[in-house]
Amino acid sequence: MLHKIVKIIAVIISVLSLVFLGGILASEDKDSAWISPLINVSYFIFAACVAVVVIYVVKNLFSKKETLKKTLVSVGLFLAVVVISFVLADSSEVKTNSGVVSGTTSKLVSTGLNTFYLLAIVAVGTMLWTGFNKIKK
């Protein structure tokens, strides 16, 4: 039943999107009156999708304790990587052509880069380890 309702809503939204797209393409003005309603529909669809995903994820997490435990461990490990990246981050001010980047901003950018590098190293290491184990067997 829910699947049929979602299909019907998807068809309605698709038809509305085609109507808005046709209005934009038919208009010769760059600032068409069709753009604002299309953006509002996009925001509504995005919010609805996020809400549905969050509801089902939370429902499935709390229905299975094993899944909840694995998820909490994964989130904890990710937060540990972010904390390690934050500790290793450089917070010195950086001079640019347009001004000076503050130490806080520099630290946050450095944290993001360090997090990316650590996760990339873990991903490559995991792929090498599983490849090595497959070759070994």
Rank of each mutant, 00 (worst) to 15 (best):
T111Y: 02
V52H: 10
L119G: 00
V87T: 07
K95S: 12
N40Q: 14
I45A: 10
Y56N: 15
V100L: 11
L108C: 03
L119D: 00
G112H: 02
K70N: 11
V58A: 10
K95G: 03
L61H: 01
K65I: 02
T104I: 13
S106Y: 10
V58H: 08
L72S: 05
V109R: 11
K59E: 13
K30Y: 14
T111K: 04
A89Q: 00
L113H: 12
L79I: 08
V75C: 01
W34Y: 08
L38D: 14
A80W: 00
S92Q: 14
L38Q: 15
I121W: 06
T105W: 06
C49F: 11
S102I: 05
S36H: 11
A48T: 09
V101Y: 04
D31R: 15
D90I: 10
N60V: 07
T71P: 00
K69Q: 06
T111N: 01
I55C: 11
I45F: 12
V75K: 00
V41E: 14
L88N: 12
K95A: 13
V52Y: 14
S91L: 06
P37N: 10
F86G: 03
V53T: 12
I55A: 15
L72N: 01
K65V: 09
Y43T: 07
V101P: 02
S85F: 01
S63T: 13
K64P: 01
S85C: 01
L88M: 14
S42T: 13
F86T: 07
C49R: 08
Y43N: 13
V53L: 15
S63D: 14
A47M: 09
I45N: 12
N60P: 08
V100C: 06
V101S: 04
A89H: 02
A33V: 14
K107V: 07
G99Q: 11
L119T: 03
A80G: 02
V54H: 06
F62D: 13
S74T: 06
P37K: 02
F62W: 07
K69V: 05
V81K: 00
L113Y: 08
N97A: 09
L72H: 01
Y117T: 08
F116H: 00
T111W: 01
S110W: 08
L88S: 09
S32T: 15
V53I: 14
K65N: 08
A89R: 03
V82P: 00
L38I: 14
N97R: 10
T67N: 06
I84M: 04
P37I: 03
L88A: 13
K65R: 13
S98N: 15
